[in-house]
Amino acid sequence: MTKNVTRRAAIGMGAAAAALAATGQAAAAEGRTPPAATQVRTGGCAEAIRRTYLEQKVKAGGVWHAHIAMVDGAGALETVVADDADRVTHGYSVQKLAVAVAVMDKIDRGQLRLDQRLDLNADIILGGTGIYFLQTVWGDEVTVANFLTAMLLVSDNTAVRMCGRVVPALEINDILAAKGFTHTRVEPVANPNRFYLGVTTPRETHDLLWRLANKTILTPRSANFLLGILRWINGYHDGIRRTMSSAERSRVATKYGADFDDLGAARHEAGIMFDAAGAPTLTYALFADSLGHLDNYGSTHPAVQAHAVLGRTMFDAISATTNRTTRSRHHVAPFRPVDGG
């Protein structure tokens, strides 16, 4: 869903990098700790993530807004990178996480069911990413579980419209507001059941992910349903999970978003890494805009290459970390190929 940013958003986004640099320089001159990407807890693992983030950000170009946090040895979640983390920015398909949470919230309240069926007709089909538009013929009946899986696993755009049929745009925003999100919103249009995916911030995306992983934003059953889709190895592999084994990939729940606007290309990715025992250990919310290579949606885009390098660094950093304090864990079954039959 491509939508141009407003003039106000364009001015804000264009000034972000300069403001961040100026703030850091001023703080350094006064002997203070700069309050953006330079804020990081001490320790070799965090320092490696911070260094890699800064290197890859410069290499990829564009304007970045990011939040990365990881559990320390005592089990406390601490910020590793907070780079313009409160910037309100277009989330593109990363916003599908918030939409899915709103749908599951309505299920948790008994107003909707995962097995509820809706018709899938030609007039609702939307192109871009996904699978439904590839069918070329329609008339199916699909469950809520079906289109949520399509929306999160292969970022299906038609599935967004299907979500709007069961949770209209204004209701989605009301649910997100009730959960404490100030900026994370979809953008309503004339049709109450359709919307643009809207805006968020890296910090609020981190908050959504951490609460999802700890099963405090939804019931455990609903949280497990979404996490199972996001962690499955048939999902997105070009970025954070690119240089990982299948077992390593299954420990990462991730959602990618890509589009362009008047400022250039945007390449986003956000997710959660789990330790070997299934405890959430690290979150990342990486939003990059004003990039080049508008038509390259593959693994060779510079920002996506940066995600891959950073993903390997982050996963290695938590390889020896165990989150012993959490009461919430999530597991996925090991992948086993099946040869029909």
Results as ranks from 00 to 15, higher is better:
289 D>R: 08
186 V>Y: 07
321 T>H: 04
174 D>Q: 15
43 G>H: 03
111 Q>M: 13
100 A>D: 12
76 A>R: 12
272 I>L: 09
60 A>R: 01
165 R>D: 11
226 L>H: 02
307 H>M: 11
10 A>G: 10
60 A>Y: 04
209 L>I: 12
29 A>S: 13
20 L>R: 14
150 A>T: 00
287 F>E: 02
269 E>G: 00
104 M>K: 01
235 G>L: 02
233 I>F: 02
219 T>P: 06
156 D>G: 00
230 L>M: 14
236 Y>H: 14
310 L>N: 00
148 L>Q: 01
329 R>E: 07
118 L>R: 01
41 R>Q: 12
57 K>P: 03
239 G>V: 12
257 G>W: 09
186 V>K: 08
337 P>R: 12
166 V>N: 01
211 R>P: 08
31 G>Y: 07
229 I>W: 04
227 L>M: 15
58 V>A: 15
135 Q>S: 13
94 V>Y: 05
220 P>A: 11
222 S>K: 00
83 D>G: 12
212 L>V: 03
76 A>P: 00
283 T>W: 08
85 A>N: 09
107 I>Q: 04
218 L>F: 02
27 A>G: 08
293 H>Q: 13
254 T>L: 03
64 W>K: 03
198 G>Q: 03
253 A>S: 11
289 D>W: 03
26 A>Y: 11
69 A>P: 08
112 L>T: 08
45 C>S: 13
27 A>E: 12
17 A>Q: 12
286 L>P: 01
105 D>K: 14
286 L>F: 13
107 I>A: 04
305 Q>F: 04
326 T>W: 07
145 A>K: 11
156 D>V: 00
150 A>G: 00
9 A>M: 15
22 A>W: 12
162 M>K: 15
278 G>T: 05
47 E>N: 07
69 A>H: 09
26 A>M: 13
207 D>G: 01
152 L>C: 07
238 D>I: 06
244 M>Q: 14
284 Y>C: 04
72 D>S: 09
203 R>A: 14
302 P>S: 08
16 A>T: 14
276 A>I: 13
220 P>T: 10
246 S>V: 14
154 V>H: 02
326 T>A: 08
6 T>E: 06
251 R>P: 02
304 V>E: 04
325 T>E: 06
127 G>W: 10
86 D>Y: 11
167 V>T: 03
84 D>F: 04
286 L>M: 14
243 T>F: 15
323 N>T: 10
303 A>T: 04
60 A>I: 07
219 T>V: 08
105 D>Y: 08
316 D>A: 14
101 V>K: 06
191 N>E: 13
152 L>D: 05
160 V>N: 10
28 A>W: 05
339 D>E: 08
89 T>M: 14
129 T>H: 03
224 N>Q: 01
122 A>M: 10
129 T>F: 00
112 L>N: 04
19 A>H: 06
317 A>N: 05
110 G>M: 12
4 N>I: 06
140 D>W: 05
150 A>L: 00
199 V>S: 14
44 G>H: 03
216 T>W: 09
142 V>F: 06
104 M>S: 01
337 P>E: 10
166 V>K: 00
128 G>Y: 02
259 D>R: 06
225 F>S: 00
88 V>E: 14
6 T>Y: 10
210 W>H: 03
240 I>F: 15
127 G>Y: 09
3 K>T: 13
222 S>G: 07
287 F>Q: 00
47 E>R: 12
